[in-house]
Design a protein around this nucleic acid. Structure first.
Lengths: 326, 326
DNA sequence: TTGTATGCGTTATCAG
DNA sequence: CTGATAACGCATACAA
C-alpha cells in the first residue's frame, strides 16, 4: 500500500516526477525513471484509482442500464457497446434493472456521485421526469425511440418497423393478425398497440394482443392461449425472435403447422431466428450499441453540446414462416 | 457541483458539521441541521463518492467475474450474489470474461486500484499464479471446487457429483456412457475426464467425450456427431441442462427417442430441465452465490482471516430421461 | 528536465 | 454539540 510519496522518497525524486513516470510523461531523465521504476517494484506500488479519479474529475467508467442481460436483444446491444468501449478505453458497469425503477436509480445515483462518467439506458422503466431530474448529474443517452428532447438517443423507428411488419403480413394476404408484445407498459408497446389498431382497423381484436412475451417460455404459453381462441388469427407479429421460437416449439407439439396453419413474423434477426428459419425484421442492434457509446462520449467531451437523435434502418428478412395467402 | 465547503459557508457552519449532517450523525443542533439541509437543497449539492472512497479506503463495490452472464448456471449464481449484496449494501460490478484471461485481469486491476473491495470468481480462465500474484490487492473468493489453499471457495464437489451421475446411470444398467463437458480445459473438466475414465475403465472411449457443450446449440451439434458414431452409447451424462435440452431437441428431429434409444442425465436443475422433463443433478447454485458474497465480505472485514472451503451438497432429481435397462 | 505548492471533496481526530 | 485541521493519494500549474 505504498503511495506516490513513499516512492518519491525511496527513489530520491519529487512526487511530481513519480507522477510523470506513472503517466508516461516523456521529459524524465532515464536514470531517474529507472530509479522510480525500481522503487515501485520493490515497494510493490500500485496506483490508487480513487485518488486519480478524484483528482481528474472523471472515472472512465460508464453505466449501462438494461432490463435483462441475458436477453439476446440486449446482449447484442451490450456487445456493440463493449466493442466501442475497448476502443475508447472505458470500463462498462452493467445494471440489470429487470425493469425495476429502483435499480435504475442506483445507476443514476452513481452518476450523481461521479463514479460514472455517463449512463446508457438501453431500455428503462423510469419515467421521463426521473431522468430529467438527473440531467445535470452527467451525460445520459437513450437506446430507445423516444421523443424526449433532453437526451441524445440511438434506435430504429419502432413504430415504422412495426407498421412495416404488419404491412408485410397484409401484403401476403393476411388480415387476421395477432401481435405479441414484450411488455404491457413501456413507450414502445404503447406505440405498437396504436399502430396495430390503426393498421387493422376493425379487424384488430383486444384478445389478439399478447403481452409479456420476452422469452422462449413466454412464446410457448401463447400457443396455449391461442388454442382457446374462438376466432383464430392466421398470423402473429412477434416483437422478438425468442418468443417466436417458443411459439414454433409449442406449435409443433400441438401439431399446428407453421406456416401452413399459422404464419409468424418476428423482430431482431438474432441467431435463433436463423436456426428456426424464422422470417424476421432485422434490427442493427449491435451498431446501436456502438453508436450509443459514441454518443455518450461525445457528450462527455463537450458537455453542453446539442442532443442528437440517431435513427438506424431496419429491414425484413424473409425466411420460411410467412405463408402467402392467395 | 457545489462541494462540502461551499455548503458550510452558505449555512454558516464548519465542514465537519456538514459532514455530520451528511452522515446522519446525531449530535447536531436541529437548527444547524436544517440550515445545512436547506443550503444543500438550494445549491443542488451531491456528494462526490470518489472523495468518500478515497477518504474511507473502500468503495462498497465488489467485482463478479464470470464467463457468461446469460448462462442459466451463472445467472442463478449472480442472483444469489445479488440478493446478498442488497442485504449487505454493496454494489456489484459484473465482468463477463468469456473465459478470456484479459477480461479477468481487468477486474483484478480494478481491485488493485482500490476501486473494488473484492472479487468473486464464479469461474475463470486465469491460472493460479495470476490470482496468487494479486492476493495482496484485496479479498478474492472462488466459486469453484479448487484445492487452491490461498483463497476461500464455495462450491459443490464437482468430482463427487460427476461420479454419482455416472454411478446412477450404471445403477440403471447403462455401461456405454458418453459425456458432454462444458470446456476442454478448466479444472472441472479435467477432474471429470479423470472420473469418467476411472469409473468406466476400459468401457470409456475418447470419442465419447464431447467438449464445448455450454448452450442449447452446442447440444444440438452433439447429436450430429452422435449419428456418425460406429459404436453408440446408451446414455449421455451432460454437464448442464442447456446442452441436454439441445440434445433432446435435435434427437426429436432425427427421430431418436429419449429415453428409449438414448438416456440423458444432466446437471444444474435449472428451470429448463423441468420443462423438458430432464433427469438432472441439482446444484444449489443460488445458495453458492449467497455464500460467496458472505465469504468475501468476511474477508474484507478481517483481512488476515483464514481461508474457508465451503462444500455444498448436490442431489439427483429423477425425471423422465433415464431409461432403466434390465 | 525537475521540484514546489496547491487543489480535488470527504472523513476523522482532537480539542474545546 | 462544534470547529480546526490533518489525512486520503494523486495530478498539475507554475517556477526554476
Amino acid at each position: 500500500m505504498a503511495n506516490i510519496r513513499e516512492i518519491a522518497k525511496a527513489s530520491g525524486v519529487s512526487q511530481a516526477t513519480v507522477s510523470r513516470v506513472l503517466n508516461g510523461y516523456q521529459y524524465v531523465r532515464a536514470e531517474k525513471r529507472e530509479s522510480v521504476l525500481k522503487a515501485m517494484e520493490t515497494l510493490g506500488y500500485s496506483r490508487n484509482l480513487n485518488a486519480v479519479n478524484l483528482s481528474q474529475g472523471k472515472t472512465d467508467m460508464v453505466g449501462v442500464v438494461l432490463p435483462a442481460i441475458n436477453h439476446p436483444y440486449f446482449g447484442a446491444m451490450v456487445e456493440g457497446i463493449a466493442e466501442e468501449a475497448i476502443k475508447k478505453q472505458v470500463q462498462l458497469v452493467l445494471f440489470q434493472s429487470s425493469y425495476e425503477e429502483k435499480k435504475e436509480l442506483e445507476a443514476l445515483s452513481l452518476l450523481q456521485g461521479r463514479k460514472l462518467d455517463g449512463i446508457i439506458f438501453c431500455s428503462r422503466a423510469a419515467g421521463d421526469q426521473a431522468l430529467i431530474k438527473h440531467k445535470s448529474s452527467g451525460p445520459i443517452v437513450l437506446g430507445e425511440d423516444s421523443d424526449l428532447e433532453f437526451f441524445s438517443s440511438v434506435s430504429i423507428s419502432h413504430e415504422a418497423a412495426f407498421q412495416s411488419g404488419l404491412q408485410y403480413l397484409m401484403a401476403n394476404g393476411h388480415t387476421d393478425i395477432a401481435v405479441c408484445l414484450s411488455r404491457k407498459e413501456g413507450i414502445n408497446s404503447l406505440k405498437r398497440i396504436k399502430a396495430y389498431k390503426e393498421q387493422l382497423g376493425n379487424r384488430a381484436r383486444q384478445e389478439w394482443i399478447f403481452e409479456g412475451c420476452l422469452k422462449l417460455e413466454d412464446g410457448m404459453k401463447v400457443i396455449g392461449q391461442y388454442r382457446n381462441l374462438k376466432k383464430k388469427p392466421s398470423a402473429f407479429l412477434v416483437t422478438n425472435d425468442q418468443a417466436a421460437a417458443g411459439i414454433m416449439l409449442a406449435a409443433k407439439k400441438e401439431n399446428i403447422r407453421i406456416p401452413e396453419d399459422l404464419s409468424l413474423l418476428s423482430f431482431d434477426n438474432q441467431p435463433i431466428s436463423g436456426i428456426f428459419g424464422l422470417s424476421t425484421i432485422d434490427i442493427p442492434v449491435k451498431e446501436m450499441g456502438r453508436q450509443l457509446l459514441a454518443a455518450l462520449l461525445a457528450k462527455r467531451e463537450v458537455p453542453g453540446s446539442s442532443e442528437r437523435k440517431l435513427v438506424l434502418p431496419h429491414s425484413i428478412v424473409e425466411r420460411k414462416t410467412v405463408k402467402k395467402i392467395t
